[in-house]
Design a protein around this nucleic acid. Structure first.
Lengths: 182, 182
DNA sequence: CATTTTATGTCAGCCATGTTGACATATTTT
DNA sequence: AAAATATGTCAACATGGCTGACATAAAATG
């Protein structure tokens, strides 16, 4: 299965505080368990920044934009769309808000003046770091608890989960490089 | 960052077929890379069933319900809410459609007649398997390519990513057990 | 230099799936 | 008999996807 949107609050109408117990799982093999673990891990992993985002009246879409602009200063709109795999209308909505509220700024490209290169402002950098901190802590703790070698295996599996066609690009995207100047 | 909703189609308004290239990544440490890998892996992982779901006019929410009802035949509504962490109103919407269209059926609980135990119909079972197949294949291939021991590390890290409070319950949920009879 | 293509922005509207609050019913528990 | 529980449902709203259409500026091309 799949993960979707954003629980805004602590949910009064939510299931009454751990009914728990319950129905045994049908035997469907270890792959199913590995898949469900991914669901549960992701569910909790993405819950970290939500509280902070809510204070800014931002959502997860804003988080993703802040993250990738922070990671790739000077990224173009087209590149960001390619990473996020959403339409430009969807991106435009959150990007506009982030610009209006001073977390992201645009610069006209020097070589290609049609491009609007995106950068975090100082406020944007601060927010990015505040959003990233709990997720980094969570991943660091998980990798540490899983012992040495876990990180390499983790990365290998995750990369192999990516569509084969996209793997070279993903590797390029996540690889850190010395800053360039626009 | 975080993953959210569902691209319905192949998106004409989407980024023009791999603009690629682009801005180098800022150096932010290996944790950031591990986090981004999770984003990209999840992005592609959840894309598998979407095409099939679209043929039924279903979305990811339906997928999640079908999956967990299939995995826990006779699960109660309250238990399902606790797994999904959504409100009962949100669940009610998709559940109603799945019942109307004959993929899920309800049975009044025998011990507690207030409960509506949920089961997949034969059509539901078939759909569940068709949805699961590509994801299982993807995970199987990824684990295989990452070599022996990768699965253990993978599971350890994922479980450690789950909120500590929820870990016992997640372990219980994913553990297969022989069927019980209602 | 005229034309076409590209990068971006934007308007208008739709849909899926979250949310809240309130309330109704049947059933079990106390 | 009363209270608590499991479920269902109504009404309204927000977020963030989507489509289609169109506008502008700049670059690339013939």
């Amino acid at each position: 299965m799949t993960v979707t949107a954003k629980p805004t609050g602590k949910s009064a109408a939510r299931a009454a505080e751990r009914p728990a117990q319950g129905v045994p799982a049908r035997e469907t093999g270890p792959l199913t368990e590995a898949i469900e673990l991914l669901f549960f891990a992701y569910r909790d992993f993405i819950s970290d920044p939500d509280e902070l985002l809510a204070k800014y009246d931002f959502g997860r879409a804003h988080h993703r934009v802040i993250h990738f602009v922070g990671r790739h200063p000077g990224i173009t709109v087209a590149e960001l769309l390619n990473i996020l795999r959403i339409t430009k209308q969807s991106l435009a909505r959150v990007l506009k808000q982030l610009i209006e509220r001073g977390f992201i700024e645009q610069q006209t490209g020097k070589q290609d003046r049609r491009q609007r290169l995106l950068f975090l402002t100082p406020a944007g950098i601060e927010l990015e770091q505040r959003l990233a901190a709990p997720q980094q802590a969570r991943v660091a703790a998980a990798l540490a608890s899983a012992g040495p070698g876990a990180e390499a295996a983790w990365r290998a599996v995750l990369l192999a989960l990516v569509n084969e066609d996209d793997r070279p690009e993903v590797e390029r995207l996540i690889a850190a490089q010395p800053a360039k100047n626009n």
